[in-house]
Amino acid sequence: MLNKIFNLYRDGFRNMTVGRTLWAIVLLKLFIMFAILKVFFFPNFLNSKFKSNSEKAAYVREQLIDKSH
């Protein structure tokens, strides 16, 4: 069974034509998204400033109250 599954994937990847280009695009895209954009441009704002959930809650509460003034 496992052998059959392995063969399915092995033969599938071997016989790809346009699929090779598509995989290259997918991998490049994922690299840009997760290794560059996420790391350097999209840190989680609250996680980067606070450690605990209560700190995050307190900060958001301040923000919500302050923004109403």
């Binding site: 695009i25 997918v26 994922l30 999209f42 704002f45 609250l46 958001v60």
Partner: peptide, 23 residues
Amino acid sequence: AIGVATGIILEFEFGTNWSNYSW
């Protein structure tokens, strides 16, 4: 293949640009 995971960028934005909303 081209479109897959493009929606994840929206989740990045939730965490960075819209943290009040996300919380």
